[in-house]
Structure formats: C-alpha cells, structure tokens
C-alpha cells in the first residue's frame, strides 16, 4: 500500500529514468557505447582504412585509384628481391629472441624468487630496460655498438676475447642481425621475468613441501611443479611477446633501419620505407597487412604447442 502511493508521487521523468535502469539489456548496450566508439575510431577505422589503402595506388597526399591486388602482386613476385628476405628475417628475429627471452626470463624469475638483501630494489630495477623510452635506450645501444669508439668492443678487446679492432657490429649483415636480437632480448626479458615471478609466487608452497617429502629434488620440483603450474602465464606471455616482436619497429628502425644491404630488413621496416619516405602509402599498407595472416599462423602455432596435454 505504502509503496503504491509513493510511486504515484514520483515525477513522470523520474519514473522513465528508473525504467531504463531496471531493464538490463538496453542499459547494457547503452553502457557499451563509449567503448565501442573509442574502439571504432582508434582500431576499426585505421584497420579498414589500411585495407582500403592496400588495394589502391595511393601516394602521400593523394588518395589513389583502386588497383585490385596489384600491390600484393608486387610483393609476391618479389619484384625488388626484398620481400622474402624481410619475411625470413621477421621469423628469424621473432623466433630467436623469443627463445632467449623465455629462457633468460625464467632464470631471472627463479633467481628473484630467492631471498636476498635488497630484493625489492633489485626487482624494481630489473624493469628499467622496459621503462626507459625506447628511442633513448636504442640510441645508447647504437653508440655502444660503434666498432672503434665504444664500450662493447673496448671491453671485448681488452679482455682479449677478440682481436683488435673487434667486430663491426652494425656494418656486417650477420653481426647487425645479432645486434638487433641482443637489444630486443635486453628490452624484452624483464617483461617475461616479472610475469614469471608473479606466476611463481602464486604457486602454493605446500605443493613444494609435499614434493620434497615425496622425494623430489630441486630440479624435479622445477620440472614437475613450477613449470606445469606456470603454463597459463607462459601462454599469455609468449603470445603477447610473439605478437609484439613480430611487429617490432622502433629498435630495428633506430639501430639499422634494414641496413646493411637489406640484411636486417623486417616487414615492419620495409612497409615504413615504402610507405612514408618512399611515398607509396598503398604499397606500404599492403606490406604491413601481410603481417596479419602470418601472425595468425604464428599465434596458432604457439597455441598448438602449448595446448593442454590431455
């Protein structure tokens, strides 16, 4: 009785508002709108525009005409001889760095999980490579790789590991690729280590105690408990890192920009070179879109390797 009288007294506009709040489905869509707008503007539009560009002969400042798959044909035929090099390099770069980041990150996480003085400080400091603006740190690396005037070769020569003058890091094809990989591993490992550390710390300690009483050695505890319990974290980290490394641009751009002789050419760099300095934005878009199906294959491969062993 009391509530009925009260409802009559409420203003009509207020009643309407209450009705919207009470209906879950319309309210749900209403609340989704801002997110959809943001995603639409910043993700969907550039993506679709990229696809459109890739099937035109657009140049910078000139939205061109539809040319079908002409740009892709250019890549496929390997017209300037670089496409397959770039694809192979991208796979090599991603594959090698991922293996190293995974292994080093795991070792680092295990070490950081031990008790030692200043542990919190060291854990925080570990993230530094990840925090420093990449252009700064990559410029520093480029300087350190300088064969005559810089620290890496000075150390190598003075510890008699190599003969004077030491390797020409960025000027020789194989060395340049190694240098790129070293810098990528340097920057990417902390991400793996921190994620693994978080994963290790939520493993219940009594599992290790049970395993110790069951007779497991340290190594057996690692392979039988730590590794399997890390599987979900491993999966997420590996996927994220593979995607980011596959499309990596900043490091290779600052350090070598594809040089020498396209030996460190990656798809991302090549797309940029055609699209922006080269002005052929349509071709650039087509090159970077090639990443998309390749990346899908790689991700499927990673998921397949890490599937639950049932």
């Amino acid at each position: 009785m009391g509530t009925a009288i009260k409802a009559d007294a409420v203003a009509p506009w207020h009643r309407r508002r209450v009705r919207i709040y009470d209906r879950e489905a319309p309210l749900g869509y209403l609340l989704l709108v801002p997110t959809l707008l943001i995603l639409g503007i910043f993700l969907l539009y550039p993506f679709l525009f990229g696809i459109w560009l890739s099937i035109t002969d657009s140049e910078l400042g000139n939205l061109g005409n539809f040319i079908g798959l002409g740009n892709y044909r250019f890549e496929w035929r390997n017209t300037d001889g670089v496409f397959y090099t770039a694809v192979a390099n991208t796979f090599l770069y991603t594959g090698v760095t991922t293996v190293f980041k995974l292994a080093l990150g795991l070792v680092m996480a295990l070490l950081l999980n031990q008790a030692f003085p200043f542990r919190r400080f060291v854990r925080a400091a570990l993230l530094l490579p990840y925090i420093i603006p990449t252009v700064l740190s990559y410029e520093a690396w480029r300087w350190m790789f300088d064969p005559t005037f810089s620290v890496i070769n000075w150390l190598l020569v003075n510890t008699h590991l190599v003969a004077y003058p030491g390797p020409n890091w960025l000027g020789v094809p194989a060395n340049a690729m190694a240098a790129l990989m070293i810098v990528n591993v340097w920057r990417g490992t902390p991400f793996y280590a921190i994620a693994f550390l978080a994963g290790i710390q939520v493993i219940p300690l009594d599992l290790y105690e049970a395993a110790r009483v069951d007779g497991a050695t340290r190594w057996q505890q690692f392979t039988n408990i730590t590794l399997p319990m890390l599987r979900p974290v491993l999966l997420v980290v590996l996927l994220l890192s593979t995607i980011l490394t596959f499309a990596d641009f900043q490091g290779p751009f600052v350090l070598t920009n594809g040089a020498p002789y396209n030996s460190t050419q990656l798809l991302s760099i090549w797309a940029y070179q055609w699209g922006i300095p080269g002005g052929a934005i349509g071709l650039g878009a087509a090159i970077s879109l090639v990443l998309f199906p390749l990346l899908t294959l790689v991700v499927a491969g990673v998921l397949f390797m890490l599937r639950r062993p049932e």
Binding site: P204, D206, L207, E209, A210, A211, R212, V213, D214, G215, A216, T217, N224, I225, P228, M229, R231
Partner: peptide, 18 residues
C-alpha cells in the same frame, strides 16, 4: 626430506592440481 622415507598428509591435501 627425500631420504627420511616418511610420508605426510597435509591439511590442505597439497594435491598437484595439474
């Protein structure tokens, strides 16, 4: 522990979930 040849049952059971 591995050389003591005793077995232990934990309050949480500590079963290996995987």
């Amino acid at each position: 522990p591995r050389d003591r040849d005793v077995a232990m049952v934990f309050q949480s059971y500590a079963l290996y979930p995987h």
